[in-house]
Amino acid sequence: MGGKRIKKDKRQKREDYRAAMKRDDISELPRKKFYRQRAHANPFSDHQLIYPPHPDQMDWSSLYPHYIVENKPQNQKDQPPPSQPSSQTVSGESPVYSDNDSTPEPPALRRISKDVEVADIGCGFGGLLIALAPTMPDTLILGLEIRVSVTQFVEDRIKALRAQSLAQSETEGGDAAPAGLYRNVGVLRANTMKFLPNFFRKAQLSKVFICFPDPHFKARKHKQRIVSATLASEYAYVLRAGGIVYTITDVPDLHEWMVQHFDAHPSFERVGEVEQEADPCVGIMRTETEEGKKVERHKGAKHVALFRRLEDPEW
């Protein structure tokens, strides 16, 4: 029937659009309407996720191509290396970890010169990542998002922004312009509730952002919340001593819930208000996330809480 055809056309349009966005040189920013997806993905189901069995087997080179450490010296310095060819595609996403079953020896990973240090858990459409990137240009930032098309949106957004920034620095010319922003930011599709330790080693991160997480109001859905006593242990595991968990939400109950769980966890202490407000990341978190903007439009309250990872006691 007619309805069906319209639906198909719509899907076709979406696919065409997103295929076009895949081109490397594209500098047009992606449009959200082609990437919308239903609000929730069940974190308990298997999905079809790609993740490395061990952080050492994670191929970061396709996410941060400008940081690749070349084994052989190369001549072109300013040229970004070609992005990793797609060897395996699962449900439309581009692979970041290629699992090559047929060859006994996995191809050597292309190493990058730095480790990811900042993670945005459930990054949504990536507003925080984009805003953070220029403020810490020497730090690798990673967004993690469970929804496929939302992740794709952020990936395309980063690609476009990188291209724009590069073009700008070229036209403005010389050494004055920045060498190209957004090279330090990447995004991955992942279920962080299950697979955080597959991507990050112990104490690898200095900052973890949990911005406007899904509230899961119903009590029987509380187990799906991205903050819990047991998950706090995993955030503590990936964070180094002194590292910070940033939380923000417009839902008072959820704010209380997060405070209660991190406060009760012996590995964390709440960061005082003075220090909190002095942290530039807090301002960015308030204003730059998509959810934060939405709350702003509705003139809602935003509740912020920061927690510091403490040194582990002796054992």
Binding site: P55, N198, A229, S233, P313
Partner: peptide, 14 residues
């Protein structure tokens, strides 16, 4: 009483 501290993961199973 420190079971909330994760010492490590033995990762490699696929």
């Amino acid at each position: 009483p420190q079971a909330h501290i994760i010492e490590g993961f033995c990762l490699g199973h696929e």
